[in-house]
Amino acid sequence: MSDQPLNGKVVTSQLIASLAARTALETPGVLRLEPTITGFVARLGPAALQNLRNAGSQNGTYRHDGVAATISDGTAHVRLDIATDIAYVALNVAEAVQQRVRESISHTGLTPGPVDICILAIEPRS
């Protein structure tokens, strides 16, 4: 198990998660990421402590509100839970997010794996 080099830094699941979250939020039509029960439990439960201790490890999963990232053998797998703007076609927004996230993962030197997206809410932008 060796660290993945990137400009002398280490690409962690946490980094991938925050990259994916930021990319998603920059995609037109995305209102926000949606925390889920899993996210809530993870924040309170032992898994949250595990995440804190293990934030830098590879081959682990990093979870935060609305985003989870796993790195396995050089491939990054991302899950995103999003809320979209009712003025956009939700499926198109999800596909744009998927494409952009895969692209930004490829810039880290990791192989983009599946990017799973769940649209949890559709609302008018306030």
Binding site: R32, P35, A121, E123, P124, S126
Partner: peptide, 8 residues
């Protein structure tokens, strides 16, 4: 976080 189902 905003509530669901705005436009209520």
């Amino acid at each position: 976080m905003d509530d669901h189902g705005r436009g209520f």
